[in-house]
Amino acid sequence: MKSKITSVLRILVCILTVFTVMGTFGVIMADKLYTTEYLISQAEKTNTYENAYNSLMKRFSDNYSVSNIPIDVYEKSFSAEWMKSSIDEKIRSSFENREAVIDFTGAEECITEYFEEYAHEKHVIKDDIYEAKLAEAVSFAKKTALNEADVYSLDVMKRAGITGKLSRAVSLARKYKYACFGALAVLLIIMILLKRPIYWAGTALFASGILLAVPATVVIANNMIGKFSLKSFTTYTLVTGTLDSVVEIVQKTGFIILAAGIILIALYCIFGRGEKAEPKPEKIKA
C-alpha cells in the first residue's frame, strides 16, 4: 500500500513539475520579449526601418494627384535616419508611458519653402487660403509619417486598451518569476524525498520539452506564420519576422529541455540500477 501511495505521489509531483517548467518558461519569455530592446532589435532584423521609409515615400507619391507636392520635397523632409529614430522613439515612449517626441522641423521647413517658391513663380497671394493650404500640407505630412513610424501599431493598441492589459500581465509575470523558481526547487526537494529524483526529473523535463518543441515544429514545418495576410508590407515582414523568432526560441528551448530529460533518464538507467529495490510485502504463510 505504501509503495502505491509513493508511486502516485511521484506521478503527481512529476505532472506538477511539467506545468511549473512550462509556466517558468512563459514567465521568462514574457520578461524577455515585451521590452523596448527586443522590439527595436526585431525592427532591425526585419529591415523594418527601410521598409517603413519606402512605404512612406510611396504614400506621398500616390498622393501627388491630390497634394501636387513632388516626391523630392518629401525626400528632403524625411530621411531614412529620421524614420529609424522616429520608430525607436515611438517604441520607447510607449513603454515609458509618455508622448513621443519627434522632430518635424525639416518637414515644416521643406514644405514651407516649396509653397513659397510655388507662390513666387505662380504669383499666388499669401492670404488665409494660402496659409490654410500650407497648414493642411504640413499636417498631412506629419500624420502620414507618424502612422508609418508606428510599425507595431502601438497607438491603436493603446486606444483599444490592449497595451495596458499587456503591461499589467507582463508586470504580474515578472513579479512571480522567482516564485516559479522557488516552486521548481520545492518540487525537486519533494522528488528527492520520494527517491529516484533523477528519473522523475528527467521524465518531467522530457514531457515539458515535447510540449514545447512539437507544436513549434508543426508551426514551422507548415509555414503557418508565413500564410498570414496583411495589407502593409512593412507590418507583414515585422509581424511574421517577430513571430518566427518567438517560435524558433520556443522550439530550440523545447529541444534543449527534451535533451536534458533524455540525458537524466539515461543516467538513471545506467547508474540507478544499483539502487536498492523497494521491499515487497511478505506473504503470510497459513
Rank of each mutant, 00 (worst) to 15 (best):
Y130L: 10
D127F: 05
N222S: 13
S232Q: 07
D150M: 04
D244F: 03
I28N: 02
N223E: 15
V186K: 06
I162R: 05
V214A: 06
F115C: 03
L16M: 09
E108F: 10
A286F: 13
K126F: 14
P215A: 07
S85I: 09
C110Q: 15
K122N: 11
N97L: 08
I262F: 08
T234R: 00
I220R: 07
L238E: 08
E109H: 13
T217K: 05
F181G: 02
Y199W: 10
N63F: 11
L230N: 01
A145S: 11
A221L: 07
D72F: 15
L211H: 03
S65L: 11
A277P: 00
K283W: 14
A260C: 09
I15C: 08
F140V: 08
C14T: 10
I284Y: 10
K143P: 00
E121G: 01
K227I: 08
K175C: 06
E282K: 12
D72W: 15
L212D: 04
Y64K: 07
K195R: 12
G182S: 08
Y64I: 05
F181I: 09
G26N: 10
V170T: 02
I225M: 07
A260V: 06
T203K: 11
P197T: 09
M29Y: 13
Y114A: 06
E121Q: 14
Y64L: 08
L187H: 02
S86H: 11
N223T: 03
M224D: 12
I111G: 01
A169W: 11
E75T: 02
T35M: 04
V170L: 07
A286V: 05
T253I: 10
E96A: 05
Y64H: 13
V156D: 15
A207Y: 09
A260G: 06
K32F: 14
C110W: 15
S65E: 14
E121F: 15
C110E: 15
Y49L: 09
V219M: 08
K280Y: 15
L166N: 09
S171T: 07
K285E: 05
D72E: 14
E81S: 09
S229M: 10
T242K: 00
T36Q: 13
N51S: 15
G254P: 00
V219H: 02
C14H: 04
V138L: 11
K133E: 15
R98T: 04
E275A: 08
T35D: 05
A107C: 14
I263M: 09
A185E: 08
G23T: 01
S7A: 10
V13D: 05
E99R: 06
Q251K: 12
A107K: 03
I71R: 03
A201H: 05
L193F: 12
C180F: 13
K227E: 14
F78I: 03
G274E: 10
Y34F: 11
A132G: 03
T6P: 00
T36I: 11
V218H: 03
T203F: 14
V218D: 05
T144V: 09
S94Y: 08
Y114F: 15
A43S: 12
F78V: 01
V239Y: 13
K142N: 12
V151Y: 05
A183E: 06
T253V: 11
F255Q: 04
F78H: 02
T144P: 00
L56C: 02
Y176F: 10
A30W: 06
K76P: 00
M191I: 02
